[in-house]
Simulated assay, not measured.
Amino acid sequence: MTDTQTPEDRGTLARRTVLVAGGVAVTAAGVGTALATGASAEEGGPKPGAPEDTCYTLTSELVEGPYYIDADKIRRDVTEDQEGVPLALRLKVIDAETCKPVRNAAVDIWHCNATGVYSGYEDMGSGGGGGGPTGPPPTDTPTGTPTGTPTGGPPPGGGHQEPTDDERYLRGTWRTDRHGEVTFRTVFPGWYQGRCVHIHVKVHVDGTWTDAGYEGGHACHTGQLFFDEKSVLLSAEVEPYASNTTTRVTLDEDSIYPDNGHAGGLLYLKYDRRHFARGVHGRLTLEVATDETNDG
């Protein structure tokens, strides 16, 4: 999906988004090989000869979700020991008012693994926070009024949950460079009950980088990054994704995706259809309102 507008149309916009239109220059182990075979596919890619940055609409703010853990790991490679298709994710952060790169911002990403489990919340299992009931179904008619706190996990996109363990795979925070860019090495996410395949992202500005990490400032953007159906179907043919028996929600069925293409977080993807397991490049430019607080 590619938005096209005339100069007159662009002049009437109150907010603008910059979408990266150049080639992907990042690599991750196993990713570059897949794209060197001449059979690569770029979904929603820019037209040849397009300028590197073109302003459109403000990137959508979306719910933070229940599984955010604040700046726990300052790193670009978040893979740890997780299996899955290698994903090189390049994000560029642009100021909404000036369309200039935002330097020294702290960008967080976090997502589930190939079987739908979030680190820090492994007890929740795969399914928006709960593994569901086990054992034979009840035969008696329910009586009385329920009391206490409900269990079984939050609904998709629900309120924050406290971590249940010390695992932190597929989570990380890194600093944007002078071009406003940051690159993460991770794996293609899996899926869990109630949600399509996605990655969470948060951008912090006006803070200070110290030896301990990033301190102060505020979150100016909280969003989610999405994958087109073609790429997800290809991932489902590869282990360990193929062993995930959870019913998958498609992008069109998802209750959180705003259905507005790249402005809503839909990634540009590049991969070899014949050798998808070797790796994927994902990229997007996020236009943020740096003077606003959007913490999800």
Rank of each mutant, 00 (worst) to 15 (best):
V249A: 09
T250N: 04
T245Y: 11
S119G: 14
D95Y: 00
V26Q: 11
R195K: 12
L234F: 11
S255N: 11
G213P: 09
D211N: 10
R283T: 09
G158Q: 05
K202G: 08
V232W: 07
T245C: 05
T98V: 03
E162V: 14
V26C: 08
D254K: 06
R185D: 13
V102T: 03
V78W: 04
K92F: 00
V238R: 10
V232Y: 08
K73Y: 08
A50M: 01
A242C: 03
D108W: 00
A14P: 05
D9H: 12
G125V: 00
T246K: 15
A105S: 07
A36T: 12
V85E: 08
P240A: 01
T208W: 02
G213Y: 13
E61A: 11
E237P: 08
G158H: 01
G296V: 10
V232E: 09
L19K: 06
E229W: 05
V63K: 13
E237S: 15
V24L: 08
H218D: 09
S235H: 06
Y56R: 05
A96K: 13
G153E: 02
D53E: 08
G148T: 05
L286M: 09
G216T: 01
G265P: 02
D166K: 15
G217I: 00
A25P: 01
A106V: 03
